[in-house]
Amino acid sequence: MFYLFMKRFIVGPLVTVFFRPWVKGIEHIPEAGGAILASNHLSVSDSIFLPVAVDRPVIFLAKSDYFNGKGLKGRITAWFFRMINQLPMDRSGGAASANSLGTGAQALVDGQLLGIYPEGTRSPDGRLYRGKLGVAKLALEAGVPVIPVAMIGTDKVQPIGKRVPNIRRVGMIIGEPLDFSRYAGMSEDRFVQRSVTDEIMYAIMRLSGQEYVDSYAATVKARLDAERREQQGKK
């Protein structure tokens, strides 16, 4: 499998040499069976560092923009993300997002590890933002545990907007699996989905030590972009 070749002989050695990642709690990753790795999201490189640290293959739901680029650069980007086990995630809502989640759910039923960022997008300022309900829906429908993960320092390696990463050490803390079997058969209940999602975000917050913000990161990003445009218009 080309993914394993990339991980073992190309991406893995490069990450190890240049970023010297440290990992705590790797024993919480099950040796077999489906599970969700629910992580905070500080950098686009999170989807590279975490799979390198885990022995089993990890599939990530990545934003569909990475797969829809135009020209040679767009095709190369899409190829790279597919080769490192990324699946396109449509964030537009409605049927498109449901279909994307369905792909993730099938991966879990097939006994695979699925990585997901409950915040839905990278943190704009290093804080932890409110989780979207997709992670809960996936966990409840597939009946799998959720393993909280905290990425440490990856925002310093590759801040938003920076293409060439800084060379510095990164870390990962993997928490104990969260069991939501008590909610079996309630995957469509929005109150249950919110309760499960909030429990997952609380676990991530405890691991990462981040300040929690009870707003969606995408909403904050949109506001900051609007303020930036307004300031530029005044110049």
Rank of each mutant, 00 (worst) to 15 (best):
F80T: 00
R122W: 01
K70F: 09
N85A: 07
R190E: 10
S208A: 08
I167S: 06
A38S: 07
A62D: 02
V109W: 04
R56A: 09
M6I: 15
V52D: 02
S64L: 09
F2R: 14
K70D: 13
G25R: 03
Y129N: 01
G25I: 08
Y117W: 01
F81I: 00
S187Q: 06
G131R: 06
R127T: 04
R75L: 10
G25P: 02
M89N: 04
E188F: 09
R91L: 06
G209T: 05
L138S: 08
R223A: 14
P57R: 12
Q210S: 14
K235S: 14
G153V: 12
L50Y: 08
V52G: 02
Q210E: 08
S92R: 07
I152Y: 03
R206Q: 12
I152P: 03
S187P: 04
F180S: 00
R182H: 02
P57V: 09
W22P: 13
K221R: 13
I116P: 02
I10M: 15
F60E: 01
V146T: 09
L4G: 15
D90Q: 10
S39H: 01
A105L: 07
I200N: 06
A95G: 10
Y202Q: 09
R82I: 05
V164W: 13
S97E: 11
D46G: 01
R8Q: 15
S47A: 13
R223Y: 15
D225A: 15
P165G: 03
T121R: 11
A150W: 08
R130M: 09
N85Q: 11
V196Y: 00
P57L: 10
A38D: 04
G33Q: 11
L42Q: 00
I200W: 02
G175W: 01
M83F: 03
E199L: 00
R130I: 02
G111E: 10
S215D: 10
S92C: 07
I200T: 03
A222F: 14
Y216C: 12
Y212A: 05
I48D: 02
D65P: 09
H41E: 01
V44H: 06
L108K: 08
R163G: 08
G102T: 12
W22E: 14
V135A: 08
I160Q: 12
A95Q: 12
P159T: 05
P165Y: 08
L224G: 14
L50E: 00
G175T: 03
L128I: 09
G34D: 01
